[in-house]
């Protein structure tokens, strides 16, 4: 068995495979199908201060090698999360990453403060990249100055590792990444979904009730690998890479390109066993190549 453990800004993971926010509910939805304790960490669905109803259906559209979604950060608010979801998560033997989003800088810092006070939460992921929420969300993530402002103020509100989730829907993701690092992010996770759209040619209407949505799945993987590589060359903080990871080979691409850990999202819908298969596959690869630890592979990309 190779050493799969990784360290993300002091957060120790037994392996580098995390379930991506928004695809894993609050964990218990998958609890009957897999042993969640085997995961490196669980990143739960984004919570906001007040309940969010979410976008008008239809919210899903399948596309070649991927899917569009326009959920719109539907959640029951942070109080309901703490009351209803946290007890299940607290009983798990794997780190819990809480994902937060707000419509204002003040929302984000208040959420970070509330959740940081809870011993069950091991890290905070600040989602400044949801393409489906009208206010906040991606507005912060697509601009260096706004990103730096919200990250800086959220930084002051928490002593836990602060991960900032970045959007690919911006001109220069490396510049936003650098701004977040300077403002105090302990780690970066990328990519959120790629803004997309589909049209029903018979009804002349958009396939999604929200008109546009976020593309995920294997279709976005090459974009995501490129962005992880680009960000990794420009920042010193650890990166959680994600975007279309279905197999161990996909995950290894991200790690070699510079990610310390990876997150599995859409693949959970296809096969709930995917994260476990990916952990096992990474181990097999390392053993076969006689690489003692997964961290040796991080950023090991060779360019001739």
């Amino acid at each position: 068995m190779a050493d799969l453990s990784v360290d993300i800004a002091g957060l120790k993971l037994k392996n580098p495979v995390i379930t991506a926010s928004g695809t894993y509910g609050s964990g218990k939805e998958y609890g009957q199908l897999i042993d969640i304790n085997r995961l490196g960490a669980v990143c739960v669905k984004t919570v906001t201060l007040k309940p969010v109803a979410g976008n008008r259906p239809p919210r899903l559209w399948e596309t070649p090698s991927g899917m569009l979604n326009s959920i719109g950060l539907q959640n029951d608010g942070v109080d309901a999360f703490i009351a209803n979801d946290l007890p299940y998560l607290a009983a798990l033997d794997t780190p819990i990453i809480a994902s937060i989003a707000g419509t204002s800088v003040d929302d984000c810092s208040r959420l970070a403060k509330m959740l940081s006070a809870l011993p069950e939460i091991d890290a905070i992921e600040l989602n400044i990249s949801c393409p489906n929420a009208k206010a906040g969300g991606v507005i912060f993530g697509s601009d260096e100055k706004l990103a730096a402002d919200v990250v800086g103020k959220t930084r002051l509100a928490t002593t836990k590792p602060l991960i900032v989730k970045l959007t690919p829907n911006t001109g220069d993701i490396a510049a936003v990444a650098v701004a977040c690092e300077r403002a105090g992010a302990d780690a970066l996770s990328l990519i959120n979904t790629v803004l997309g759209m589909a049209v029903d040619i018979h009804t002349l209407r958009p396939q999604l009730g929200n008109v546009v949505g976020g593309l995920s799945g294997p279709a976005v993987k090459p974009i995501a690998v490129r962005m992880v590589w680009e960000v990794a060359r420009n920042v010193g903080v650890p990166i959680i890479g994600m975007g279309g990871i279905m197999t161990a080979a996909d995950a290894l691409e991200f790690i070699i390109a510079g990610a310390t850990a990876v997150a599995v999202g859409t693949a959970n819908f296809v096969d709930p066993q995917a994260p476990i298969k990916i952990i096992e596959g990474i181990n097999q690869y390392l053993e076969k190549k006689s690489i003692a630890t997964v961290s040796e592979l991080m950023g090991a990309l060779k360019i001739d």
């Binding site: 928004g22 695809t23 894993y24 509910g25 939805e29 998958y30 199908l33 669905k45 109803a53 979410g54 008008r56 259906p57 239809p58 919210r59 899903l60 559209w61 399948e62 899917m67 979604n69 959920i71 539907q74 859409t266 959970n268 819908f269 709930p272």
Partner: peptide, 22 residues
């Protein structure tokens, strides 16, 4: 019927507008 992704209540993709919530 609805388009579904996860099927287990995690992704919230198959929402239907009910009386006062999805």
């Amino acid at each position: 019927e609805a388009r579904m992704a996860c099927g287990v209540g995690a992704c919230l993709g198959c929402a239907v507008q009910a009386r006062d919530a999805y």
